[in-house]
Design a protein around this nucleic acid. Structure first.
Lengths: 198, 198
DNA sequence: GTCTATATGGCGATAGAC
DNA sequence: GTCTATCGCCATATAGAC
């Protein structure tokens, strides 16, 4: 499947903006990366800001439905939760551009863009996650609990390059299966988890 | 206590860089904010990059010892953990510049700066936290568990502007005492926490 | 230690040919 | 839809006076 010029620009823009941020990427950088002139970019997008916003939306829309397969199964709530965590860890590990764009938006976006991000990308996934948590009998502060899960997974992976220099680090701590299992265990049983049973 | 010119520049730089990032803050912006000429900045720092690195170090050194009072008490491990979490939530809530600078460094820093950040700022706090977790009888993957705690608190607060547009939000979820209590409870008992006892 | 003035180059954005 | 050429501005950084 080949890409239109516009899609090619957007995909390249996502990669550059996620790695360097809005201000550090020039239209000349992007033009060179897609092997076009800067003037050609302005044919597809009215200005740099509009191009950036399109790129963010493009990156997020690609991922929005990645979790639907999890929610649409007929499994018990606990198993749904387990699978969601694994899927979420996997996506954030494999798609660094997506993960970094989210973190950059958390730093740079104003209230309007936060609302777009929340309602356009996270809303449905968050609703499903909160529903499963409620099904597990945790009916108090469901929003806070779902948010905790998202926040933990995002930053656990984001902090990996830092954590390598902190005492006790092991390579195992960066493996998708390990992270997913530990996070699920933490949320089901607390830090103590299943330690006694080994 | 009055500030030297250099400290005044650094403090202002921390504020600007944390809000906008390295590339988006010009030396002219900073000069205007401290009411000097750009040339004066170059008297104190050899270039923009050196100024930025000094500002990051300045912001982090200020916070490094904020938690020592917690670790030096003679309280039970569980109470130490509870107090650390509360202190950490408080610092990250009140000092947005510090919190945002950390998140920006996670995005922008190379391996060398990650090492500086880990060893110069987080190492001792992390070691103490890991020690307390081990004292509570959780001896497996202590590093991962301590990291989870840090990651969760950081991103819970960072995600507040986004979470306001997700279903189920309540103002209470952004209060320091509430966050600290919920996080401690999560780590001690899992998501279910003390829900049954109300 | 701080200023004014300036060198040098990259920036976003546009005009107009093809 | 893409190009070359260019405008006007702002960036980092320096020179030299006070």
């Amino acid at each position: 499947m080949s890409l239109s010029s516009k899609e090619h620009i957007l995909q390249t823009a996502v990669s550059l903006f996620s790695k360097q941020g809005f201000a550090a990427v020039s239209m000349r950088d992007l033009a060179k990366a897609v092997d076009m002139s800067t003037a050609a970019l302005y044919h597809h997008f009215s200005n740099k800001q509009a191009l950036y916003l399109s790129a963010v939306q493009f990156a997020f829309t690609k991922q929005a439905s990645a979790f639907d397969a999890v929610w649409q199964t007929e499994l018990p709530a606990q198993e749904k939760l387990r699978r969601f965590v694994h899927c979420f860890v996997l996506v954030l590990t494999k798609d660094a551009d997506f993960r970094c764009l989210i973190q950059r938006e958390l730093l740079d976006a104003d209230a309007e863009r936060m609302q777009l991000l929340a309602e356009g990308v996270f809303f449905e996934q968050f609703r499903q996650l909160a529903h499963v948590i409620a099904q597990l009998g945790m009916t108090q502060h469901v929003h806070f609990k779902a948010l905790s899960m998202i926040a933990l997974v995002c930053n656990l992976i984001q902090m990996q390059p830092l954590s390598r220099y902190l005492p006790g680090w092991q390579a195992e701590h960066e493996q998708v299966d390990f992270i997913a299992e530990q996070v699920t265990d933490l949320f089901m049983n607390g830090l103590k988890g299943s330690e006694g049973s080994i």
